[in-house]
Amino acid sequence: MNWDWSAVDAFLPRLADGLLVTAQALALSALLAFGLGLVWAVAQRSGPALVRGPVAVFTEFIRNTPLLVQLFFLYYVLPEWGLTLSAMVTGVVGLGLHYSTYTAEVYRAGIEGVPRGQWEAATALSLSRGRTWGVVILPQAIRRVAPALGNYVIAMLKDTPMLFVVGVMEMLGEARQFSSETFLTVEAVTVVGIAFILLSCPASFLMRTLERRLAR
């Protein structure tokens, strides 16, 4: 294999641009996933029956179908319906929505892990529904599942390369553009691959440490 270090040098600034975009996309979709997931979880736990069923069906559907196809759906179908989003917004919505169905399950496990007595105590103190959720239940539930949520952020990071299909210039997108200009595919793709390992290995190590801490 002809490995050209000067190609790596040439690619690094582009990689940095891509990294920035990856970080932005990841941060925004993680926020969306955390927020929407909470909505799904709470709706399924204490929403009206008319809401619970459709939410369950919708989240099962999103979780059991490919993110890539969902991205294409957003990219091609929404404009047909008169809604044109930028590449970044499309990507963030797709990734965030997809993973919100996973975080919903995580929240749900966390909520179920909160002892019954906590609900009863909140009722005994005649706290409002909102305060029961906001002050009593969720803080306990989320603390418990923080590492699991963190692990899904890592999973999302590894799915960000898919966003290039809707035109987001994250790291893989940069690598593709770079190699189509220079034909230095080997260096560009390899560097991106290594970058992902360098990002996700320490991150999952961190999560495991956090998990062990919380388990104690």
Binding site: K158, P161, M162, V186, V192, I197, L199, S200
Partner: peptide
């Protein structure tokens, strides 16, 4: 650790475009 840390799409790119070279 390495394969769990790898993005499946990038691994695929690598096997499709880099490995043949």
């Amino acid at each position: 650790e390495v394969f769990r840390g790898t993005s499946a799409l990038i691994l695929m790119f690598w096997l499709f475009f880099v490995l043949p070279l």
